[in-house]
């Protein structure tokens, strides 16, 4: 089957029920999306399908019906997305393992809400677990990103 990931087309030969996460990680070597729980509890595996955040551990590859963006496609060290730039500015990451998923959730959320309140942010981000406890910085970084996106 054919998948479009970060603007590039990939041919994979896998079972239709294989979760997208494992197709990305083990078949294609795209390791930005992380395995954390496998049961939609942590959000570490978050990617975008047609711009919307989804848990790739829950999405069978056969059910993918659009273009996939992973953290690698959101922006790069040379061309940062506003969310990534804010994450660097606030030095959000500790171990960093949850952060790909956090940023993918944040980016898709900011597409729908350009001036979020604390409550909006808390609600949108509560499906993403951070065992290192970086929540206060994530909040701050999202506000910075929102501001920069508005003025962009």
């Amino acid at each position: 089957m054919n998948l479009t990931i970060n603007g590039k087309s990939h041919e994979v030969d896998v079972e239709a029920e294989m979760p997208l996460l494992w197709v990305l990680r083990d078949e294609l070597g795209i390791t930005g999306p992380k395995y954390g729980c496998g049961i939609a509890q942590c959000g570490a595996c978050t990617v975008h399908v047609n711009g919307t955040a989804v848990r790739s551990c829950q999405l069978a590859v056969g059910d993918v019906d659009g273009d996939i963006t992973t953290i690698e496609g959101l922006g790069t060290p040379e061309a940062l997305h506003a969310v990534q730039a804010a994450w660097i500015e606030h030095q959000v990451a500790q171990c960093g393992y949850c952060q790909s998923g956090q940023m993918m959730s944040a980016a898709s959320f900011l597409d729908t809400n350009e001036d979020p309140s604390d409550e909006n942010i808390d609600l949108a981000m509560s499906a993403n677990l951070c065992r290192c406890g970086t929540y206060p910085r994530i909040r701050a970084a999202i506000k910075t990103a929102a501001k920069n996106l508005r003025s962009a």
């Binding site: 990680r25 083990d26 390791t31 690698e72 060290p77 959000v92 990451a93 960093g96 790909s100």
Partner: peptide
């Protein structure tokens, strides 16, 4: 200080143990 791993961790480009892969590796 800007931690030396901050940029990599903010762009999904840091390789963790679970991300490592080698030629011919099995899972």
């Amino acid at each position: 200080m800007l931690r030396h791993d901050t940029i990599a961790k903010s762009t999904g480009t840091l390789t963790y143990g679970i991300d490592l892969a080698f030629e011919g590796m099995v899972h």
